[in-house]
C-alpha cells in the first residue's frame, strides 16, 4: 500500500522556545483513517497545520500524496480538504454562501460551486438552514458545515482536526457515520481527537501524541492488547459480600481481584468464559451480584499506561473547544470504560 500522508521527524518551535513538535513521524495508508490521539496541547493541531501548508516546520519533512508540503505547497493545497477548530467558516455568510465561496476559492466554476454546495447541504441535512446566517447555527450544525466545507473540492485526503469537540453525543454519532461513509468511498482521513472512544471507533491506525512526541503507534487493538486486559466487574449489595465474592472468584484469574467498596474487579483473560465461570462460582456460593459487566480495556487505560497521566489532563489548560465541558470524554456516547474516567474527580 502507498502512503497518502507521510511525516518524518517534524519539529516545530514556537516563539519563547516552546517546542510544539519534537520529531513526529508517521505514515497514513491510502484509503485509511489514521488517528492522532492526545490531550489538548499535545501538538496534534500543529501537525495538521504543517501538513496543510499553513505553518512551516522547523525540521523534518512531510508529504501529501507524494508532494512535499514545504517545497510544493501549491501542489498540495488542491489535494486535501480541511475541517477543524482552526479553520473557521464565515459567520456573516449563510451556510450555502460559505460552501459556494469555498467552491469558488477551490476554483470550481460558478455553476459547479453552486451545484456542489447544494449537494453537500442536502447530504449534511442543512438544506433547511441553508439560507440562514451561521450565527443562528447550533454547534452541531456548524461542525457539519465545517466538515461539508472540507468536502467541497472532493479531495481524496481529509484532515479533520477534532471534528467532534464540543458536540453532543447525537451530533457526534452522526458525524462519525459521515466519516465512515467517506472512508468507504476511498477517502484517506487524518483525524485528530482527544476522545479515546472516537479514535477507537474510527481509526484503523493510531499514533498517541503527548508533548510533541509520538509515544506509541499501532492499531487500536494492538495498543490495547499491549497494555490493557479485559476486566470483569462484579457489583454486589455491600462490601462484605464483595469480600466474599472476591475470595470466591480469585482462582479464576492469574491476576488478583480488587475490591472497591461494594464492587469487585477481576482481570479476565478468558473474557466471556471467565464471566461464565465467575457466575457459576458465585451461584454455588449463594452470592447474588447486583450487576455484572465485562469491560474492554479503554484507550484511556492505554494512555495512562503510556504517559503516566490521563488523556484529559490539561484539557482545560488551553480552553480550546473543551471549554466548560470539564473532562472531555463524551458522557452518553462513551463506553463503560471511558465513562469511568469521565467522572470529575
Amino acid at each position: 500500500m502507498t502512503s497518502a500522508i507521510e511525516a518524518e521527524g517534524l519539529v516545530k518551535r514556537f516563539k519563547g522556545g516552546v517546542v510544539a513538535l519534537d520529531g513526529v513521524s508517521f505514515a497514513v495508508e491510502q484509503g485509511s483513517v489514521f488517528g492522532l490521539l492526545g490531550p489538548n496541547g499535545a501538538g496534534k493541531t500543529t501537525v495538521v497545520r504543517i501538513l496543510t501548508t499553513v505553518l512551516a516546520a522547523d525540521g523534518g519533512r512531510a508529504r501529501v500524496l507524494g508532494y512535499d508540503v514545504a517545497r510544493q505547497p501549491e501542489m498540495v493545497r488542491g489535494l486535501f480538504g480541511l475541517a477543524g477548530q482552526n479553520a473557521a467558516v464565515d459567520e456573516n455568510l449563510t451556510g450555502r454562501e460559505n460552501l459556494q465561496m469555498i467552491g469558488r476559492l477551490s476554483h470550481l466554476s460558478r455553476a459547479a460551486a453552486r451545484a456542489r454546495a447544494a449537494e453537500l447541504l442536502e447530504e449534511f441535512g442543512l438544506l433547511d438552514a441553508a439560507e440562514r446566517s451561521l450565527k443562528t447555527y447550533s454547534g452541531g450544525m456548524r461542525r457539519r458545515l465545517d466538515v461539508a466545507a472540507a468536502l467541497v473540492a472532493r479531495a481524496s485526503v481529509l484532515f479533520l482536526d477534532e471534528p467532534t469537540t464540543g458536540l453532543d453525543p447525537q451530533s457526534r454519532a452522526e458525524l462519525w457515520s459521515v466519516i465512515e461513509r467517506l472512508v468507504e468511498g476511498g477517502t484517506t482521513v487524518l483525524l485528530t481527537t482527544q476522545y479515546l472512544e472516537e479514535a477507537d471507533r474510527l481509526a484503523s491506525r493510531l499514533a498517541v501524541v503527548d508533548r510533541g512526541r509520538v509515544i506509541s503507534q499501532g492499531t487500536p487493538a494492538e495498543l490495547k492488547a499491549a497494555l490493557g486486559r479485559t476486566v470483569l466487574e462484579i457489583e454486589l449489595p455491600d462490601s462484605a459480600a464483595a469480600e466474599l465474592a472476591a475470595r470466591a472468584v480469585a482462582p479464576l484469574s492469574a491476576g488478583a481481584p480488587g475490591v472497591y467498596g461494594s464492587s469487585v474487579e477481576l482481570p479476565a483473560e478468558g473474557g466471556p468464559r471467565t464471566a461464565m465461570e465467575a457466575l457459576r462460582v458465585l451461584d454455588r456460593e449463594g452470592i447474588e451480584p447486583v450487576r455484572l459487566s465485562l469491560r474492554e480495556p479503554s484507550l484511556d487505560d492505554v494512555f495512562l499506561a503510556l504517559t503516566g497521566h490521563r488523556a484529559e489532563q490539561g484539557a482545560t489548560s488551553t480552553g480550546e473547544g473543551a471549554r466548560g465541558r470539564g473532562p472531555s470524554v463524551p458522557d452518553a456516547a462513551a463506553g463503560a470504560g471511558a465513562a469511568r474516567w469521565a467522572s470529575p474527580s
Binding site: 501549491e74 488542491g78 489535494l79 477551490s106 468536502l151 472532493r154 481524496s156 468511498g185 476511498g186 477517502t187
Partner: peptide, 19 residues
Amino acid sequence: MGVPVVTLRPPGTAEGAPG
C-alpha cells in the same frame, strides 16, 4: 452521501503546476 472521487492530481491542472 456522494462517493468522493479519488484523484492524485491537483484539481484544475492536467499536468504539473498551473501556468
